[in-house]
């Protein structure tokens, strides 16, 4: 019986240990680091197009990090591609929402492009104070504390009654942290998008000759509400309209190399 369980665990181990992150196809870590420095050097030489291309190839290879996204956004901004800069900054924001440099550059890029940002609730500001990765890690820790204290409480509850209080606190912690994580997951039911390719006209219907509803400056951050073939129905505040998919890039989730 024990041997059978050990065999099962041995079979599961590689699957459990498998990484959930993207593959770094084509580049080793040393090469990635080298390319990162090369892109930084190009940026210093004001060769922003080359810097942007280097950073983008890093991202496309799966080396997604706050630093790479931030620097790619800077390179895009400097070469006048403000909408892609906004997109990169916003993607980085999902990983590091409290980064002050990121917030400053995103705000500056939005002011420059005239782009709009949807108004957010207090709940949004509270839960997005931490990234979803941080909420996930906190949920893991809280769960393990709960498991351990629950086990201890089961065995020693007659001797150490205070273990019950610790278990309740752990349970509250699990609920709180899982709520933060769940809030991020709920946000993605209507994911954010960034308008690209100049000022875009949102229309009343997903047709090129439909009546114009309102215009969205490049770099505007909108909410994607619906999808219809080559069109997104987007919302900003009280206004909704249809825009071509080619003019709207989804912020998160995204596939490196695809956009």
């Amino acid at each position: 019986m024990r041997i059978r369980m050990l065999i099962m665990l041995a079979c599961l181990a590689p699957w459990v240990a498998r990484t959930e992150t993207t593959d770094n196809a084509g580049l080793t870590q040393a090469e990635a680091e080298q390319q990162f420095f090369a892109a930084g050097a190009a940026y210093k030489d004001k060769e922003y197009a080359r810097a942007a291309a280097d950073y983008k190839s890093l991202l496309d290879a799966g080396f997604v990090s706050v630093e790479t996204l931030f620097n790619y956004g800077n390179a895009c901004f400097k070469q006048g591609d403000v909408d892609d800069a906004v997109l990169a900054y916003r993607r980085a924001w999902y990983l590091a929402p409290r980064d002050p440099d990121l917030a400053a550059n995103l705000r500056f890029a939005l002011q420059t492009s005239g782009g709009i940002e949807p108004e957010r609730s207090t709940l949004f500001r509270i839960f997005t104070e931490f990234s979803w990765l941080e909420w996930r890690a906190a949920t893991s820790v809280a769960l393990w504390i709960l498991f351990i204290t629950a086990g201890l409480w089961l065995v020693f509850r007659r001797v150490h009654a205070w273990l019950g209080n610790v278990m309740m606190i752990a349970m509250v912690l699990v609920l709180l942290t899982a709520s933060g994580w769940g809030y991020w997951a709920l946000l993605l039911r209507s994911p954010e998008g960034v308008m690209t390719g100049g000022e875009v006209t949102a229309r009343f219907a997903p047709m090129a000759d439909a009546t114009p509803a309102f215009s969205l400056p490049a770099g505007s951050i909108i909410t994607i509400l619906e999808e219809n073939k080559d069109w997104y129905r987007v919302g900003t505040g009280d206004d909704t309209g249809w825009v071509p998919k080619t003019n709207c890039k989804q912020v998160y989730p995204w596939k490196p190399g695809a956009s």
Binding site: Q29, F63, V66, F70, N105, W181, P253
Partner: peptide, 22 residues
């Protein structure tokens, strides 16, 4: 007024997730 300068290389090159939040 200008954007904040580049960030230095990350400490670890383990890629950040870009997939669904679940």
């Amino acid at each position: 007024v200008d954007i904040v300068y580049l960030k230095s290389a990350p400490d670890a090159w383990s890629p950040a997730p870009t997939g669904a939040i679940r």
